[in-house]
Design a protein around this nucleic acid. Structure first.
Lengths: 160, 160
DNA sequence: GTCTATAGAACGATAGAC
DNA sequence: GTCTATCGTTCTATAGAC
């Protein structure tokens, strides 16, 4: 595997365990078996590397794919939503995106904040579409606001 | 308020936001409006101070009290447990004890790990007692293991 | 008890040889 | 591309004056 990919993929659990604040370049290098020179050749610095480890790239796509699959199971809007909600989650780990998004150093920097925010927007949009479709088919009550309800759904998952 | 208490109580949100790894003495001092000398006079160091901020002391007791109150609402064991589970939680914040217990630096040190572990033991023991009582009164099926079920209940809350 | 000064280590990044 | 050496900063802690 190229050294660049090694740097991005090896320290996934490191970022998970120690979050952004506690994840330092040295530890990443040890984990990826790469030297400092190598790291700084491929990336501009911590703020450039760390957010790419596991989360916005591979993890966000995995998450979207899994959510998508869950939504496709079920005929009615209600079924689709409950399929999504009951989807098996690695409960002990929690939501990696949410965890990253809560990190104060991520929040402080617009550049670092953008990728997780995008994922969240998608994550709210997807169930909102399902709910809208449900209303169209008159499966759901008309006085239900898709966007609000979708936001509430995601909030429940994140909050928990 | 005495400076010692100020140091323990002022920076609660700081510990919450940045966890153990990201919570440094300087920031605590700024937040508590105390100097370094003051801090190191009252506490041995970061490992001595930080775990006392909010969590094992005041927060754990608040948590126990709240859980206790919830358990007392309800006549049957089932009612008591569901009262506890449905108890209103500050869902956006999550469990402060669990969050602290997950911190890698806390896990690594037996001394830092002990207080949160104690709280968890109590937290498992309380519903276990309720369930045992329920079995005695034949409200609950006899083949229910109180300890296991209690652990599962707590796991659900923490996992979420 | 609280302050300032300072030590020793780790952190994040850069420089330059190879 | 990768390495080692090094810089400046911050972190944690100690020393000693007041």
């Amino acid at each position: 595997m190229p050294a660049r990919d090694q740097l991005v993929q090896s320290p996934q659990d490191l970022l998970w365990e120690r979050r952004y604040v506690g994840t330092n370049p040295k530890a990443i290098q040890r984990r990826a078996k790469a030297g400092q020179g190598s790291m700084y050749h491929h990336f501009a610095g911590k703020a450039d590397l760390v957010p790419r480890i596991g989360e916005p790239q591979c993890c966000a796509e995995q998450l979207r794919a899994a959510a998508d699959a869950a939504f496709r199971q079920g005929r009615t809007a209600g079924e689709q939503v409950s399929s999504y909600l009951l989807r098996e989650r690695d409960v002990l780990r929690g939501c990696p995106i949410g965890r990253l998004a809560l990190d104060p150093d991520i929040i402080a920097s617009p550049a670092l904040r953008a990728p997780p925010e995008q994922t969240f927007n998608w994550l709210r949009g997807r169930p909102a579409d399902v709910l809208t479709e449900g209303k169209r088919k008159a499966e759901l009550s008309a006085d239900l606001d898709p966007a609000d309800t979708a936001a509430a759904l995601v909030a429940v998952l994140q909050g928990g």
